[in-house]
Design a protein around this nucleic acid. Structure first.
Lengths: 168, 168
DNA sequence: CTTGACTTGAGACTGAGTCTCAGTACAGAA
DNA sequence: TTCTGTACTGAGACTCAGTCTCAAGTCAAG
């Protein structure tokens, strides 16, 4: 799969600019992330690597994810649970999420109208935006056909999250 | 402050429908939440109560917050840190957030155009929305005047979160 | 080689949030 | 009043994602 190799290269370049090295572990993780998963969790990665009998510690996984986030190749997001999810950034295009509360599937979309309108609002409020993200919770088509009902309002809390990567 | 008393009443009604009681602790918490804070954290509440020499345990705080969320009077949100924030729901109107990455202040807004456009997108994707939320990270006017710079892109991760209140 | 900086795994640590359990409070029945 | 059942509470143990530390390993450059 040449695409994955390209990503490895991209990561290597990034590491180079930081005076860091592309190690076996890092290659293995990038390969895993970019060949299989789209949205994934740190623990999931840990498990997959264990299953493949590739020994990579939790610390290394978190460290590598941090590097990938820094490089812009991976994004850290919240998707309705109380821990982080990660998603790789294909092409680097911004996108938003429709999240099915029944099956957990995530539909991505990008909409220029929304983007422009958001920018207008920021201008009006004299706010200088650096990043925005919209999420919609609901029921996907296939779950709706199966008769899934929307979750009761009292079970839905706000879906907002500003997951800045806070550093000291 | 009559508004707070009204909220206490509202909570009492909700508790009644669930066969639950309005206790001293619950009154104290609702009073604290609705008279002082808008966005707050569980630990912050714990601290405030301790300062006021009102003994309320952490367990009770979390339990009461859960009830308040269930009742729809409080929402659980993520606002750029790795733990939950809460905000009380005034009037129950939907709103979105502009979050300053420098001073942490939160500007709220509501925009019908955004809402309608979001609905259109859902229709196109055959997605039945139950809840949506938009957040924008950036620099507020006052911080910008003080020369604050946007956080570097590699320090910003996605700000999305679907904080369903997952129950067994 | 040697040096020095980068890496790693193991495991300790942190901290928000949850759970358990024994004791308390209270409403309604007797 | 007393009794009884259920709700409620605090203390503290527990969980678990994520972070930190440290000793040992690796590698490039001199």
């Amino acid at each position: 799969m040449p695409a994955v190799e390209r990503e490895i290269h991209r990561f290597e370049n990034f590491l180079g600019t930081q005076g860091l090295r592309l190690t076996q572990e890092r290659v293995a993780l990038v390969r895993e992330i970019f060949s299989t998963h789209y949205h994934f969790e740190a623990d999931e990665l840990l498990l997959k690597m264990k299953q493949k009998a590739v020994k990579i510690s939790r610390a290394t996984i978190y460290r590598t994810l941090e590097l990938l986030v820094k490089s812009g190749m991976v994004r850290r997001v919240h998707l309705g649970e109380d821990h982080y999810h990660y998603e790789y950034v294909s092409g680097n295009s911004h996108h938003d999420h429709l999240i099915c509360t029944t099956c957990g599937s995530v539909i991505e979309f990008h909409d220029v109208t929304l983007e422009n309108r958001t920018r207008e609002i920021c201008e009006k409020k004299k706010f200088t935006p650096t990043f925005y993200n919209l999420q919609v919770l609901g029921i996907c088509d296939s779950c709706r056909r199966k008769g899934a009902l929307p979750v009761a309002p009292d079970r839905v809390t706000a879906i907002s999250e500003g997951a800045l990567q806070l550093r000291k």
